[in-house]
Amino acid sequence: MNRNDFFKLLAQRLYPVLRAEGFKGSGQTLRRLDGPLIHVFNVQGARGGDQCYLNLGAHLDFIPPEGGLPVTAQAMTESHCIFRDRIDPPTGPAFGWAYSADAAEAEETIAFILSEWARVGRAFFAQHARYPQSYEALLQREIDPATIHGRTALHLARIAMHLGQSERAQDLVQIGLARAPERATTLKAELAQVSATCGREN
């Protein structure tokens, strides 16, 4: 089975489930928009040509998309989202979903993908189901300043600022600056901008 046949089967079996849950679109990307919330499901063909990845993304429309360029909510892909994950095959995250040797094997793969959507996909989006409640809960979780990525701290600081939690935003800015690599000048500038905005609002 080739890529096109597998993608058609995926669209026939999985997409109706996604659309019933509020996703819209066609092709390789479906989106669910609800206020500031942007949820993205994307099928990405692997470079080798014999497998694909199932990408999940969640974003908030008041935060600049990843990549540095403006993108409308209707055009966002998983790569633009600040929160990302994948539905991995049984072989693990280092591998994609193989297109299968024949129709019967492909049906088995699609059936497993459907079960993984119920287990992994819904669980991911449940963490980003409501605004502001989901993100107030996210900001209340304990953050390890020794392991958090500097850019993740930036995203959380922007969310805290949008929620009016200036003190929390400033704390996250300081964590982000401490974690930012020496040459990450753009990240440092973005963190400083959040800090300055919080200072003006106090």
Score class of each variant (00 low, 15 high):
G121R: 02
L191F: 12
E167G: 02
N2R: 04
V17M: 02
I143Q: 13
A73C: 07
R130F: 01
D102Q: 10
L139S: 02
F41E: 02
W117G: 08
A146D: 15
H149D: 15
T152L: 13
F41V: 14
F23C: 03
V40C: 00
D85Q: 05
Q140C: 09
R84S: 06
A75S: 10
E78H: 07
G92A: 06
Q74A: 15
A180D: 12
A160S: 09
A192L: 06
S115Q: 15
P89R: 04
A103E: 15
A196V: 04
C81H: 03
G48N: 13
Q28T: 14
A153M: 09
D85C: 06
L54V: 11
L33P: 08
L191W: 07
I82C: 07
L172H: 06
C198W: 04
G96E: 05
G57K: 05
L138H: 00
N2W: 02
A46V: 00
G150I: 08
H155R: 14
V120N: 08
E201I: 14
G68R: 12
D88V: 13
P16C: 04
R47V: 04
L177N: 12
R47P: 00
A11V: 02
P93K: 09
A118E: 15
A58D: 07
G35C: 07
L172M: 11
G121I: 09
G45P: 00
D50I: 03
L191P: 07
T152W: 09
N55Q: 09
F7S: 01
E108M: 13
A184N: 09
A58G: 04
T29M: 01
T197S: 09
A106S: 06
T197K: 06
F95E: 11
P181C: 11
D5H: 04
Q193P: 01
S100D: 15
R86E: 12
R32C: 08
V194K: 11
R47W: 03
R32W: 01
V71T: 13
D144F: 03
L138M: 15
N2Y: 01
V43I: 12
E108R: 14
A184K: 08
D50P: 00
D34I: 01
Q174D: 14
R47H: 10
D50T: 06
S115M: 11
P132T: 00
P36H: 11
P145S: 12
I87W: 06
F95R: 13
S166K: 04
I63Y: 07
P90S: 08
M1G: 07
L60A: 11
M1L: 14
H149I: 08
F62H: 08
G164F: 03
L163A: 01
